[in-house]
Design a protein around this nucleic acid. Structure first.
Lengths: 240, 240
DNA sequence: AAGACACTTCGGCCCTCACCGAAGGATCGC
DNA sequence: GCGATCCTTCGGTGAGGGCCGAAGTGTCTT
């Protein structure tokens, strides 16, 4: 009945890893970690390669199942295939030894500050804001870390009070810890993390800054988080 | 105070992925997933490459932090560096599209049957036995999958009854689901999974078959699992 | 219809890297 | 000490793959 003959060999694993073993392709995937769809040209410019080179890489990534694509007119939109893929890249990124690259220009410094303050991580919230929300939820007994991360009964009720329904059970874990690159502490991911992030956008708590993955807390969001989580406002002063 | 300037670039991620992007190195890592230490020659023979080639690959893997090594006389013992690394390889392996390789010879069939029945997966139990234990623990209310995988109070008591103390809290999650390659269903991993596996070896419930990662259930183990989990004996008939 | 734009295909360049065999330590057993 | 075993270093070879620019296809705008 079950397929016991499916044998995983070294080359199989190597083929998958090989997709991420190129600087340009890895750069694509890191950019796509913001959870949005990018066009081929945007990615090419982002990585600093010719359009033709980007095409070849995208063909490999899509063919390998890491990326999903949608054609719209003359545009080729591409995004991470699924949450599992996003988690794989996160995991890899969190284990990769990072070079210390002091930001060069003043705009670069501002950009990196904005990213550290609040950003999307695939489909959930990260940065100081994401971590602060996660820790406040823990302090209020909405999350429990004792034996693995879980959403408590109070947590379910709290979500309901915000108008967020529990996501249906799938293979994706409802709550999951995702190590924050800048904070070095975990923030909330998983289906519930995604639902919370979606709700934050829909309700105008947060809004995108420019075209990147950085987000800013709005005045509404600041007040809502203070009311519902007791978050002090130092976490998310709106940025220009 | 915190290092906000550490920027992860594409090449950083690519360098890590590149370590696993070679068939031979991937084969090494899959072999090391049994959680034990292998010598360089064993790995070379396993992967079918010259000893000199194996040396080069091991240098890369150790240098990249994926493997830890210990020199003992003329032997170079090598093992996975830590549970995080093991989980990374598991994740990669579970996402890699696998070729269907019908086992060729009769001994190969027996080996693959033994592996499907019971084996180690890094430091915990996998195969039909690992999945059966996990599902029995779930049925008896020792594990809860509702909002992420957790060990229940009953589960803690059950472990204590077996003489297994709760592992101290570290960065490693106490319980974690690990997708079983052969069963396509999750089995118990994490610190508790590791403690249970260690206890199973120490108490003689299971024993290694030959030199691979396959294990066999002993008569003691069969009886203990029946008494404590109600496991029927079809799961683990001892193999020659 | 014409031009601009987004993407793809192709050919060619060059560099990286996996591999081996031969030779040279290093360690163990006798 | 003397082979046998385990590992390492080094040079050479060959294949693979990342890159670009030029030319071609399809799509949108004017």
């Amino acid at each position: 009945m079950r397929n016991h003959d499916a044998h995983l060999e070294g080359p199989d694993l190597a083929a998958l890893a090989g997709l991420l073993a190129d600087g340009t392709r890895a750069s694509f995937c890191l950019a796509l970690l913001d959870g949005r769809a990018w066009t081929a040209t945007e990615l090419a410019r982002h990585a600093g390669v010719a359009a033709s080179t980007a095409t070849e890489h995208l063909n490999l990534l899509v063919g390998g199942g890491l990326l999903a694509q949608e054609r719209q007119g003359r545009h080729r939109y591409v995004r991470l295939a699924d949450p599992e893929t996003a988690q794989l890249i996160e995991t890899l990124a969190s284990m990769a030894p990072r070079r210390v690259n002091p930001p060069r220009s003043l705009p670069a410094v501002n950009r990196s500050r904005a990213l550290a303050r609040a950003r999307t991580c695939y489909d959930h919230l990260a940065g100081a804001l994401g971590v602060a929300i996660t820790e406040a939820m823990t302090d209020r007994g909405l999350l429990d870390w004792e034996q693995g991360l879980t959403l408590t009964g109070n947590g379910i009720a709290w979500l309901a009070g915000l108008g967020i329904a529990l996501p249906p059970a799938t293979r994706r874990p409802p709550v999951r810890a995702c190590l924050d690159w800048t904070e070095r502490r975990p923030h909330l991911a998983g289906a519930v993390g995604a639902a919370l992030c979606r709700h934050a956008f829909d309700s105008g708590w947060i809004t995108r800054i420019g075209t990147g993955r950085a987000v800013a807390l709005t005045e509404i969001g600041r007040r809502t988080l203070q009311d519902h989580l007791g978050l002090s406002d130092e976490t998310g002063t709106p940025v220009s």
